[in-house]
Each structure stands twice: as structure tokens, then as C-alpha cells.
Amino acid sequence: MSTDAYEADVVVVGGGVIGLTTAIVLAERGRRVRVWAKEPSEQTTSAVAGALCWPYHIEPAELVGAWAVRSLQEYEALAGDPGATGVRRVAGVQADTPLDFMPVWTEALPGAREATADELPEGYGQGLRATVPLIDMRAHLGYLTRRLLAAGGAVEARAVSGFDEAARVAPVVVNCSGLGARELVPDASVEPVRGQLVVVENPGIEEWFAAPNSPTEITYMLPQPFGVVLGGTSQPGSWDRTADPATARAIVERCARVHPALAKARVLEHRVGLRPVRPAVRIEREVLVGGGVLVHNYGHGGAGVTVAWGCAEAAAELA
């Protein structure tokens, strides 16, 4: 299809980590790309993510491993310049997780192994120790935006009510709208899963730690340049973006059982984000009524950062 009559080759709907990485892949392959974002990247769910590179609450399992490994390769390279990219390699322990929980993933992690008894906090009998990318998302989203602009792409503040609007500007539209896909597609299988975090001053923590507590609670502490991110919650169906004080206290108390110094650490910030969860990630191509191409790339749940580059390349192949 000739693109001469269009203003762009591709419009990507959505300006979070999935939209920006997809736009970068397309732009760096020579496509004229515009990102239409309803809100600035710093106001997206991506911006409040703890952003430990780890497969979490995402399906289909048979594809996630390869997407995560491809993304890991990209983050490993970006970790060479953490000041610019926001990506660092940090060692830590994922408790109550066997080494073979996802072999294609753990085999790709340099030095991944079972944690020894002295590497586990009291109360945990098993864990997986690994060095993985840990991402300062606000810095990283800025990096992604700059990289896209350098490749000739553009980011525009623009909300859409349907894909036909974008199809009038470009012959290919990529739907990276995350939770917005619930109404935009519409896809009722997309639902919010609320995550609440607490950011505190770092009392000297250098390694990350994470452990599942229950279907709705997680314990984790992620040392970032701006403090330690403490988590968290996983509350399906909640649209509440207001930080709950009782939940915040419970998060700090759980984390302080692992690192007692956290009990007195000064609270810097409360964060709440809504993970765009779907039974399985949707990467799929369809033809619009007017003849344009629509490629879907949404439903990444709590692992959008972890699979962003792998999914971006899969979507780009369909575009």
C-alpha cells in the first residue's frame, strides 16, 4: 500500500513503555512513526512501576519466556549507561521460586542459582538468586522518548475514541493502549489490577528482594537511585488510584520484617498504578473496515517492562 497520501507510516496509540518501545522498533527500521498518547509518559502506569525485570502475572507462558529474554538482552546493553537509560544490573533474591520455574528465562540470567540459607531472610526456606535489570522508570521513559525522537518519531498528546481516526493519518495503527483497550477495542477481558507502593529513603539496602505472600499481596524492596521502592499489592478489579494509608503501613511492616531498618526509614512518596491485566497478551493483526491495518499489542499485566522489547518486535513484524 502506498503511504504517499498519509502523514505517517504508523500511528502507535499509547505512550507507556509498550507504546514507546514499539514505536522505537518501527522508527529504527525506517518507518515514519507517531505516538498518540492520552497522557504524558510520566503519568502512565509505566511511570509508577517498581520495574524489576522479571516475568510476573503474564501469559501465555509458551511465549513469555522468549519475549522476556529478548528484552533482557536489550536491558543488559542499556545498563552500560545507567545515567542516561535508567537501567542498572542489580543482584537479589526471588523467594519461594524454584530455579526451573521458567527455564528459558532462568537459563538466560547470568549466574542464576538457588539461594543459600544465609542469603535468605528469616522465614524463607528457598529462593532464586540472580542479577537482573532494575529500572528507574521515570528516567527510562525519558530515555525512550529521546531515542524515539532521535529516530525521527514524534510523540503527540492526543486521545482517541476509535482507531479509524488514526487510520486516516497512517495506513498502520498499533494499539498499545494498555488498560484503555478495555473501552477502545472494546475488550472486556482487560481489567485493572491495583498495585500500591511506598518509596522510602534507603537505609543501606543494595540488593533487591521479592516474595509472593498471597494472591493480593507481595513483599518486595527495590533499591533505586531515588530511594527504596517497597511493595506491594495485587488487587484485581480495583480502579482506585488513591494511596490507602493502612495498606501503606502494612507494606512497610512486611518489608521491615526482612530489613528492620526500613521500619524507621523516612517515607518519600506513595504510588498507585493499575496493571492492565488480560488472560493472555494480545499481539494480533486485523484489517480495519476502511482497509487499514490494526496491530494489537496490549494486556501485559505486571510484566510490561519485562517483555516490552520482545513484544515490540513481535508487533512490528505484523505491522
Rank of each mutant, 00 (worst) to 15 (best):
P276L: 03
G86T: 03
E107F: 10
I283N: 01
T306V: 11
T3W: 07
P279K: 06
T219D: 01
D100A: 13
E107M: 14
G153P: 09
H270E: 08
G292K: 10
P121S: 08
S214I: 12
H300Y: 09
P121M: 00
V33D: 03
P133G: 00
S41L: 02
L63K: 15
P55L: 01
I58Q: 00
L63H: 14
I135P: 04
A37H: 06
P276Q: 07
V33N: 03
G111F: 04
W36Y: 04
I283Q: 10
A84Y: 07
Y6T: 03
I58S: 00
A170H: 02
A154T: 13
I135K: 06
L120N: 10
A314G: 11
R257S: 13
V229I: 05
P279R: 00
R31A: 12
L318F: 06
R278V: 00
E191H: 15
Q235C: 14
R278Q: 04
D9Y: 02
V12D: 00
E156Y: 07
W309G: 04
G273W: 01
P110V: 13
Q43Y: 13
V90E: 11
G301I: 07
L134M: 11
A154W: 09
E7I: 08
A280G: 03
G127D: 03
R129F: 07
E317W: 12
V295C: 05
A181S: 14
L148A: 03
A265S: 01
A303Y: 00
A27H: 01
Y6M: 00
A91W: 12
G92S: 06
A77P: 12
A108L: 00
A246Y: 14
P215D: 11
V174N: 05
L144A: 03
V172I: 05
V25F: 09
T3C: 13
L99A: 09
R138I: 03
A61V: 13
E191N: 15
L109S: 09
E183P: 13
L144C: 04
L230I: 00
V87Q: 05
A51N: 08
G231T: 05
E317N: 14
P212C: 08
Q73I: 14
A79G: 01
